[in-house]
Design a protein around this nucleic acid. Structure first.
Lengths: 373, 373
DNA sequence: TGCACTTTGGCAACAGCGTTGCGAAAGTAG
DNA sequence: CTACTTTCGCAACGCTGTTGCCAAAGTGCA
């Protein structure tokens, strides 16, 4: 705010609110450029899509070109007059690092502005080896990624780190990470930022990163990403942005009770979807596991009225068709009862590096006006 | 938009985007004025709370005073200099009508800008009597409300109509309203707007109106309003605004399955919270009903990470303490397992006219920058 | 080949937004 | 009565997107 007039600093003219407007419109344009991909998009199309006047778009794109973020990329065929000049994003103008900390493994990617993976690393990891060891390993991998890239990347825009949670996204502090309670209270964001030398760090749950990656990757509207691996969690995207809740606690899908007084779950409750679902998987009864997962998904669909359900995680990937079929059956039955169109179910694209890429998007998304910007 | 230069119209100077910024800031100020109530709020306090400069606030409030929406209301005690001038909202500057259509009864209120009820009507209603009869009844009551007010209100800002749903809030079209399938596809908003003579009409679900009323009434953050009457539904408020989902389908709390293959429900599924809960109520087992409701609420809390759970509806009001106690027990047990602070449970304030008042807020909220503006 | 027409897109002038500089108004304290 | 503090509006300013206008670059037809 800086409303002190005494010292003589004569900065911040113009107005904070107008700056907000400017960056909002700039982000809008950047996001359209990104979505258009290498084919690019013309100024007039940008104007139509943003609702801005062509002249405003010209001004904004001129700034972007000056900053090296956008460039001209040929022209379209004429429609009777001067042909439209096509603009595209310059992906090399910025890079981001995404790190996925799993229980036994670390995956990291370096992406450009576009989200395209430029370099990647994969290493074994023991999340229980203590803060010092894990931090050192992460810092090492992040440094190696930059050197390994085609064009060496000295300073990425930021580093996104994701892990199973629960945690506090806003402060970047871990809570009782499932299976590794010793992390409770550890300020991962600040510790890592200091270690990496003032590179911005963002911390989030792995399911949120996966969901964000899908949202940026083209999944529009509202959807749920259900992750079935060693546990069962969800990432929720509502109206294009990830819903975390005030304490980053949203997405606790697995401990939703679907069988009153059912079999005990590791969490201490009874009849949780996770317990029932993993139990069925263990018994080899994939069909029942899928049905239970479908019931949980149907509950979610009813509560939030989402557009789509996407499935992922190692267990799903082991037999994707069975899970899709089972979940779809439950949702279709629901749709027949309500009279609405059935909610589509698919396997989430991305797979292996999906989560790490999503982690990188934690850094990139704000640039394009997605998330808390 | 109007980008045609041919005719010579020289309107719309200034810019659509700047107008959006202006109305956003104006709404921010208006909302603070409303929240402050009759005691009012000073310009400097407005500046601090909005993040605007004092001068910007002066300009905005000057416009508001010119338009009759705000007025000076005395001054505060001096803190060593010129005392602050207190501003307040002028509630009589605008009015809104809220109509609550229940299965057997119609309640309607006329409120001022503040949301204070100025006049009210209550009449028996048969929702199954056909469109013509219901429309006539509503139009009659709305007209009577305006005449009955202390100062006759000729043209309210709009009319909010709410009923059990399901329906399409955006288009104002009803779907298969529970118990009255004959309404399916009826364009209530447009039909009523035409009948009332171009007064804006908004249509929504009753639970959403109740939730909106609570949100405007001071419940901040994210919360769920659970309504237990002849059915069981929920209104969700996420980050201060009502979450309806893309098809106004959100809040289908009652048909959340909490007992796999449990007793059949009217919806055609098995083990729905509604069936279990109402079944327990019918047996006189309030304790079990509250426990089941609590399990559903806990599922919701886990999925969305909300701050608060509020209970309402005729069945709850019959024995509020038992329901609060039962739901709280389940949520507290959950909190002990996760280690988080327990989610508070309360009975929703408002009671009788709460839903109709919330319906009026459907009209007023956009003025104060809440909702789809 | 040349002319009329269409479409793109930049330059310059403009209105309106919030901000800064400054001074009048309205209190308190000595 | 004087000195000081605090509130708050007027005037000038910088920046935003918008409008008016024109050059550039194509197509289509005579």
């Amino acid at each position: 705010m800086n409303r002190t007039n005494g010292g003589g600093m004569r900065r911040a003219t113009g107005g904070v609110n107008l700056l907000a407007l400017r960056s909002h419109n700039t982000a809008l344009v950047l996001d359209l450029l990104r979505t258009a991909g290498p084919e690019g998009i013309s100024r007039l199309e940008l104007a139509e899509r943003t609702g801005l006047t062509p002249q405003a778009v010209s001004k904004i794109t001129a700034r972007l070109r000056e900053d090296g973020l956008a460039a001209e990329a040929g022209r379209r065929a004429s429609t009777g007059g001067k042909p439209r000049t096509v603009l595209r994003l310059v992906p090399e103008a910025g890079h981001a690092v995404g790190v996925h900390l799993d229980r036994d493994e670390l995956r990291a990617v370096l992406t450009d502005l576009d989200g395209t993976v430029v370099a990647q690393r994969r290493a074994p990891l023991d999340l229980g080896a203590g803060a010092e060891a894990v931090l050192a390993r992460v810092a090492g991998v992040v440094g190696a990624l930059g050197d390994g890239a085609a064009a060496r990347v000295r300073s990425p825009l930021g580093v996104g780190v994701v892990l199973p949670g629960p945690l506090d996204h806003e402060r970047g502090v871990l809570h009782r990470v499932t299976g590794f309670p010793e992390w409770d209270g550890f300020p991962l964001r600040d510790a890592l930022a200091e270690r990496l030398g003032s590179v911005p760090v963002v911390v989030d749950k792995d399911t949120n990163a996966a969901a964000l990656g899908l949202a940026v990757g083209g999944e529009g509207g509202s959807f749920a990403y259900l992750h079935l691996g060693t546990g069962l969690g969800a990432g929720l995207v509502i109206g294009g942005s990830v819903h975390r809740g005030p304490r980053t606690g949203a997405g606790e899908f697995g401990h939703q009770v679907v069988q009153l007084d059912g079999p005990p779950c590791g969490c201490g409750d009874r009849g949780c979807v996770e317990a029932l679902c993993l139990g069925a998987v263990e018994r080899g009864d994939t069909q029942e596991a899928a049905r239970v997962l479908g019931v949980g998904a149907a509950n979610l669909v009813g509560l939030l009225d989402i557009d789509r359900v996407l499935l992922g995680g190692r267990t799903v990937e082991a037999d994707p068709e069975a899970f899709v079929r089972g979940v779809r059956a439950v949702l279709d039955a629901r749709a027949r009862r309500t009279g609405d169109a059935p909610v589509p179910v698919r396997v989430a694209s991305g797979g292996g590096h999906g989560v790490a890429e999503g982690a990188a998007q934690l850094v990139l998304a704000p640039v394009f006006g997605r998330g808390e910007g």
